[in-house]
Write a protein that binds this DNA or RNA. Structure first.
Lengths: 129, 129
DNA sequence: ATTTGACCTTACCGCCACTGTAACCTTTAC
DNA sequence: GTAAAGGTTACAGTGGCGGTAAGGTCAAAT
């Protein structure tokens, strides 16, 4: 299967698949006589694994490590859980930050008349902290 | 006031201040005879304005536009409110996405025993969607 | 047989908002 | 005199790709 077909099956772009290979996230694909990359079902599964990890917000590096762990028969679920919990902490921190931003924005947007006058609580907030 | 002092007063780094000037977010600072940048209170206020806008998650470009609007005596609060509401929509979308990620992560982390066995619901999730 | 169009390849730039580093100049303190 | 602590510019790197260029290959239509 060529890269475009692998892209269709995974929902990744061809560029992304090449990028993952270049970055060492997935091993280099075999090549056909003309130099085209060839993919089999195993490669597709790795690509989908990485795609799902990325979809959960893991960095590409973490996704790579998780893939390696998943392929290690001597892995422990403790190692995986630790990575997931670390990531979850970051996610929670980000959500809290975004939530604070959201609250402030909703507050000042709610106070702003949004008319043709220059007075504006939003700008007041940005000007005076 | 030199750039390091402006940095102290604003909480920005000297590098960031230079970057904002280079990107046209703030007008070029005056220079002393030796070529050092000089800042006055007005520049500090602009820098703080941009810092606060960035702190609310506005892009640097949006922060710049908001600064220009804030300095325009013929501005309307409607223009500001529109930008803030657009940004708020993006923030809400991001929070929702992060919340979904958080829910999934908490679910699989909660199911994972985290022991020395290889069985792992987290990897199952990544392998099977 | 040729040409068109859709693939494939590599290689490089751009994005965003900085941070780090290098190489060099100026000021200040001892 | 000299060393530390500031300043200057310019360029590379970050993450995770997307866009584009310049070219090779292949299948089908003419």
């Amino acid at each position: 299967m060529n890269i475009a077909e692998a892209a269709k099956h995974t929902g990744l772009s061809s560029k992304t698949i090449r990028y993952y290979e270049k970055e060492g996230v997935i091993p280099p694909a075999k090549r056909s006589a003309n130099g085209y990359r060839l993919y089999d079902v195993g490669q597709l599964e790795s690509l989908l694994f990485v795609k799902r990890a990325r979809g959960l917000g893991f960095s590409l590096n973490d996704s790579h490590e998780l893939l390696l762990i998943s392929q290690d028969p001597r892995r422990t679920s403790a190692a995986v859980k630790q990575k997931a919990e670390e990531h979850l902490l970051k996610v929670n921190t980000q959500i809290e930050q975004m939530q604070k931003i959201k609250d402030v924005l909703e507050s000042v947007v709610g106070e702003c008349l949004g008319d043709d006058q220059s007075a504006c609580p939003i700008l007041d907030k940005l000007s005076q902290g």
